[in-house]
Amino acid sequence: MNEPTKTNGPLVNVDGVEKVFRRGSEDIHVLRDLHLKVPAGEFLALMGPSGSGKSTLLNLIGGLDRPTRGSVSIGGERLDGLSDRLLAGWRARHIGFVFQLYNLMPTLNAERNVELPLLLTHLTKAERRKHVAAALEMVGLSHRAKHFPRTMSGGEQQRVGIARGIVTDPTLLLCDEPTGDLDRKAGDGILDLLQALNREHGKTIIMVTHDPHASARALRTVHLDKGQLSAEAVA
C-alpha cells in the first residue's frame, strides 16, 4: 500500500542516540551513544536482559518516543524533525507494531481490530475490507474474522495483532517480545509467520526478545546491555 522508502543507505539508522529518563532528581541513562544500522529486508533480533533498553530503542525507532541526544532516521527521514502530529501520521503509514500482550481492542472482533490502522486512510469501506481480508489470510485466520479476542487463544490473538501490524503494508514491522506470552508451540507458529513475512514478502522486521530460541529465527542478532550494543554484535 505504501510506496517503499527509497534510500541508498540503511533503512534504519540510529546515530549516536542517548535516552535519559528523569526519576525525581536522578537521571537514568537508558541508552548511551548507540549506533545501529538496519538494511531493508533484514530480520533483526534485539536481545538483552530486562532493563537493558531494548523496548526503549524499539520505541525510538517506531517514533513513539524521542531521543535525548542523537538521531533516528528511517528511509533517510529524520524523525526528530517531525511534529507530534506529523509523527503520528508517519507512524500510521510506515510502522507496524506487534506487542507482547497483543493489545487488541476487546470490544472489537478480529476483523475490526485489523481494520483500525486503516480508519484514517482514504480507503473506502470495500477497500478496507479487502485489505483486512488479505492480512487475515496471510496470518491464516480468515475463518476467525468475526470472533472476538476473548474467544481466541493467545497464539490466535497474536496472529490478529500481526495482521493489524501488516495491514497497512508498512515499511518496518516492530515486534516487542511477540512470543513472550505464548507457549513454545504457539510461539513457534508466530516465529514461522514472522520468518515467512520476511522471506516471502520482504518485510523488514526488528524483534525485541530475550529468548535465544526466538532470536535464532532472525537473520541477525544484536545484544544490548546497559544501554549499549555489545561489541561483537554490531553489524
Binding site: 502530529r85 503520528a88 507512524r91 490502522p117
Partner: peptide
Amino acid sequence: VELGVLKAIVFTN
C-alpha cells in the same frame, strides 16, 4: 493502554 495502542498505530492527539 488501549488509548496508548490507538495512538501508536493510528490516532493523533
